[in-house]
């Protein structure tokens, strides 16, 4: 059974992102980039499924500029078998990514498609859902447990009220949440071996997908700084202020 894992190259979670002077976007020139942490969990889950003998080949796919190769090599070092790089310098919105993923998934005949629940750069949380809809297959989002059976998968989801388990017929889309697993530290021999694993290059046009952005960014700004608070003399004054000034009571 083939597993397809999608990974995104994003600004490293340790980086404090700054807005460009002209307010057009965030400035990511010369900042550290890494694999989206949720996608790391997705790769890890696929590798564990393979190690448990439940999954066969793991294909990892990324979309974006040339440097996405590094992200794909990391996934290969973690245990993926081969990589597909859909190379483009264009801005990709979730819908375009979902359409491209659909094309790749169909070409690969993947039975299970695993991706992070969201990317930590735009926090969209849309791609997995869009992909499932476009492919007209089941989705198990925010997974904290994935149980693969013959022809189906049970996904335990993190929802507001607690946990919910859904049973999906394969093929299916699973998006990963933080508690699903803890990604491994990559082994040195696997880093060395990863550079010899196959990495196929594709372009969006190869799949006939229109990736034109549907959104226009008007302005990017830093969140407003929190202003200083005030001290209240008594609980009564606090209640009064909450009632009359903040109007939250």
């Amino acid at each position: 059974m083939k597993v397809l894992v999608a990974v995104k190259r994003v600004v490293d979670y340790n980086v404090k992102v700054r807005v460009k002077a002209d307010g057009s976007d965030v400035d990511i020139a010369n900042v550290k980039m890494s694999m989206n942490p949720f996608d790391e969990i997705a790769v890890e889950e696929a590798v564990r499924l393979k190690e448990a003998g439940k999954a066969g080949e793991i294909v990892v796919v990324s979309m974006g500029p040339k440097q996405c190769e590094e992200t794909l090599r990391t996934a290969l070092a973690m245990g993926a078998d081969r990589a597909v790089h859909v190379e483009t310098d264009a801005v990709l919105e979730p819908l375009a990514v979902a359409k491209l993923l659909k094309a790749v998934a169909e070409e690969e005949q993947a039975q299970l498609i695993v991706l992070g629940k969201q990317a930590i750069d735009d926090d969209c949380n849309q791609t997995g859902q869009m992909l499932a809809a476009l492919m007209n297959i089941g989705q198990g989002t925010f997974a904290s447990k994935v149980d693969l059976a013959d022809g189906s998968v049970n996904v335990t989801r993190e929802i507001d009220g607690g946990l919910e388990t859904v049973s999906l017929k394969l093929p299916a889309v699973v998006t990963t949440d933080l508690r699903l697993n803890e990604p491994r530290y990559v082994k040195l021999p696997n880093i060395m071996a990863a550079k010899k694993k196959p990495l196929a290059k594709k372009a969006p046009a190869d799949f006939g997908v229109d990736i034109t952005p549907r959104l226009t960014t008007l302005k990017v700004a830093e969140p407003a700084k929190r202003s200083a608070g005030i001290k209240v003399a008594s609980a009564a004054e606090l209640v009064a202020k909450l009632k009359n000034e903040a109007k939250v009571l």
Binding site: E70, R73, T74, A77, Y185, I191, M192, A194
Partner: peptide, 22 residues
Amino acid sequence: EDCNVELVDAITEEAAKFAEGV
């Protein structure tokens, strides 16, 4: 000859994670 800057980047990246995390 098998060594190159990209490979070394990957090695230092993972080693850094191990040093910082473990």
